[in-house]
Amino acid sequence: MSEFPEHDPKDHCLDESLKEPTDSLIVHATARGIAPFILLIGLYVFFHGHYSPGGGFQGGVLLAVGFLLLRLSLGVRLSQIVMPHRLTLRASAIGALLFVAVGLSAVIMGGNFLDYHLLPIPGLAPEYLRYFGILLVEVGVTVTVTFTLVAIYDELLGC
């Protein structure tokens, strides 16, 4: 990673080297090998946020880093199959909308915005409604963070 050639400034789009799968066997192997684990850790961090440090944002960043490692190793073109960059921003908007929707459903049930104990899930005590409310909200956060970070990476890379 450390040796970047000074590239031609007129080349506005991405470097060809990142478009195709990487030549370096080490990068290829480590990145492709580690990426699934990072994704898994990301999911763990997200779901375990209620009991230990972690939560939506951290999980989201880890997931994004996992996808970005795939981008690095597979090259931009191939990794589109895993995560097409046309979708990223829209998916993150959907994540934020999910957050708002959770909040608004409480309003519809007659409470204040984001008041989880009024969520329309039957058969749960208010404390557990809050528990799941937080979880739902964190899903939204995770989706947004994951996809946005990938989107920012894509944009910075210029493809």
Partner: peptide, 16 residues
């Protein structure tokens, strides 16, 4: 930070 990087790239693209 991300947005500022984006701006830096945009500036570089324009002025090298």
């Amino acid at each position: 930070l991300g947005v500022s990087f984006a701006l830096a790239i945009a500036i570089y693209r324009e002025y090298q």
